[in-house]
């Protein structure tokens, strides 16, 4: 087996530091997910309204978040708020704000898509059966919408976990930054460590995202 520099992981507290970095990445993404899924569902419902004002406002919000690279958003929130308002927010809070804004926008669009994908005859059949519009939503529309949403939102959640690799640019030391620190600190002693460390980071990201996919699969099977 080629030398992948795994011994570097056993030096000092390196492995614990890497796990600490993973925890930072997961904490940022999971807090953001918890914030953005409910807000996204509300946003998605608002986006289906026929009201022109709400349509324009949600559209602008979605497009701004979608067009701006996440890195720019991170810089805007972390440094921009200090320049404009004098707020001194921590890198981690800035990350959570940006990821929540992003997650809410994307989740909102997913919910909107799922809602309008329910064929009109579902609504019509429901009212033909004598269900009120509230009952139609609760018993007919929401169950079908959630089923359609599961794979899409899992996609979004795993993407949010992986995109935390950008927060190192605003001074948050997460798993990838710790990996780079370990590789650099050992670049003389173990020049091959980059392979082993990046492989480990890959496995860590995989282990973080895999259970989420499993839960999604189980839910989908159950609701089929």
């Amino acid at each position: 087996m080629p030398d992948l520099g795994f011994e570097v992981l056993l030096k000092g507290k390196n492995f614990a530091r890497l796990m600490g970095g993973l925890w930072v990445a997961l904490r940022i993404s999971l807090i953001s997910v918890v914030i953005s899924i409910p807000l996204g569902i509300l946003l998605g419902i608002v986006m289906t309204w026929k009201n022109p004002i709400s349509r324009v406002l949600t559209r602008i919000y979605l497009e701004i978040i979608r067009i701006m690279p996440q890195l720019v958003l991170l810089f805007l929130v972390f440094f921009g708020t200090t320049r404009t308002f004098g707020w001194d927010i921590s890198g981690e809070l800035a990350s959570i704000i940006v990821f929540s804004l992003w997650g809410t926008a994307e989740m909102g669009d997913l919910v909107r898509g799922a809602l309008i994908s329910i064929p009109i005859h579902q609504y019509e059949s429901a009212s033909a059966l004598g269900l009120s519009s509230g009952q139609t939503f609760l018993y007919i529309i929401i169950p079908q919408t959630i089923r359609r949403l599961i794979p899409l939102s899992i996609n979004l959640i795993t993407r949010m976990i992986k995109t935390t690799s950008l927060v190192l640019m605003i001074g948050v030391v997460e798993v990838l930054k710790v990996a780079q620190q370990i590789i650099e600190a050992n670049r003389m002693a173990s020049p091959n460590a980059a392979f082993g460390i990046y492989l480990t980071v890959f496995i860590l990201y995989f282990l973080a995202c895999w259970p989420i996919s499993l839960v999604a699969k189980a839910l989908e099977r159950r609701w089929q």
Binding site: K11, G12, K13, Q181, E184, A185, N186, M188
Partner: peptide, 14 residues
């Protein structure tokens, strides 16, 4: 820097 050995880096003890 936290990844620029030998000017500024983090050792194995953090």
């Amino acid at each position: 820097f936290s990844d620029k050995n030998p000017f500024g880096y983090v050792d194995e003890n953090g």
